[in-house]
């Protein structure tokens, strides 16, 4: 597949040809066929834009999730041409759509539909696929797509050079940077010429979930001796509620009678693994550190810069914990 020289032509004073739907082969395609146009898809269009700029290609978006007005937002996000379709495609529909178009790159969002159609399409088109990409780049020497695939629970990412054509990837859109919103971009909205059968509505079902506890909470606000009074610890509870999490405490809080035994974080209490641990007035000891090893982001509010928690935290705030809790509560209620 040759390089798209239209950008060079435009630079040299010639007129770049507008992309046309049927005749042009190649291009970076984004397929979002779940009946909605969400932020994740716009971010994926942005990533496609970056790849297309490196390849000298156009960005096409095939979607059934937008009307013409909503399609404008995808042009601001980087699409050169938006193809609107009706209904939901089966794998066979997509194969017959893409076979004559000979795309160079096809990207799917990592949703259940995207995973089924993306992997199936790769198999049918004999393409190369990275089934879980957190990022994508272009190898400029060989003009190949290199996907970054998370391994070991995202402890690292593995480079996957996609050898077969078309190069395809199922992309975790939550890992991508924010979508472009560039009003000066121009593009075309066209009909995809595809009239697919609407998908059958699945029957919804719900089942009871275990209650949120310290062990499975996404946010934990932990209080300790630095909160000084039971009123001070009440601020930790309020903060936990405002952040949608659970409050807990260390042994000093238990000894002071501020928390019940099941709210204890430590070797004799709960082992926690939240995304955010807000430690208010905790000094930190071995018992606590053993139990917070799996915590994501640790923010410690601690007036004493020599406290052990200061070395373990990602962010430290040297302030009175109760004062800081009040200030943060006020910010959160305002937002």
């Amino acid at each position: 597949m040759g390089m798209d020289l239209s950008y060079l032509e435009a630079l040299m004073g010639g007129v770049a040809a507008e992309p046309t739907t049927s005749e042009s082969a190649g291009g970076v395609w984004v397929v979002g066929v779940e009946g909605r146009l969400d932020d994740g898809l716009l971010r994926l269009v942005g990533k496609a834009r970056v790849l297309a700029d490196a390849l000298g290609a156009y960005v096409y978006l095939l979607t059934n999730g937008s009307d013409r007005e909503a399609a404008e937002s995808t042009i601001r996000a980087g699409a050169d041409q938006v193809l609107l379709a009706q209904g939901s495609p089966t794998l066979t529909d997509l194969v017959s759509f893409f076979e004559p178009r000979q795309p160079e790159v096809i990207l799917f969002p990592r949703t259940r539909v995207g995973r089924i159609l993306g992997a199936g399409l790769a198999q049918r088109l004999d393409g190369g696929l990275c089934g879980h990409a957190a990022d994508l780049e272009v190898d400029p020497i060989y003009r190949r797509i290199v996907a970054h695939q998370p391994v070991l629970d995202d402890a690292a990412r593995q480079r996957m050079t996609i050898l077969a054509a078309p190069a395809m990837a199922i992309v975790d859109t939550a890992a991508l940077p924010a979508a472009f919103n560039e009003p000066w971009r121009s593009g075309a909205v066209a009909d995809a010429g595809a009239d697919w059968v609407p998908a059958a509505e699945p029957r919804p079902i719900t089942w009871p979930q275990p209650a949120v506890t310290l062990a499975n909470a996404a946010v934990v606000v932990a209080g300790g001796r630095g909160l000084k009074t039971v009123e001070g610890f009440a601020l930790a509870r309020q903060l936990a509620q405002a952040l949608g999490g659970v409050a807990g405490g260390d042994l000093t809080a238990l000894d002071a009678g501020w928390i019940a035994e099941e709210e204890l974080i430590g070797l004799t209490g709960a082992r926690i693994a939240p995304k955010l641990l807000l430690a208010l007035g905790l000094d930190g000891d071995t018992s606590l550190f053993m139990s917070i090893q799996d915590a994501g982001l640790i923010v410690a509010v601690q007036p004493d810069p020599a406290a052990p928690i200061v070395a373990a935290a990602d962010y430290n705030i040297h302030a009175d914990p109760a004062d800081f809790a009040r200030a943060l509560l006020e910010r959160l209620s305002r937002a």
């Binding site: 690292a156 593995q158 996609i162 200061v310 373990a312 935290a313 990602d314």
Partner: peptide, 19 residues
């Protein structure tokens, strides 16, 4: 269809920042 390359590692955990 793909070629597995090297790993990309996140930056090493350093001492926390102070706000």
């Amino acid at each position: 269809d793909v070629e597995v390359g090297g790993l990309i590692l996140p930056p090493e955990r350093t001492r926390g920042q102070t706000i």
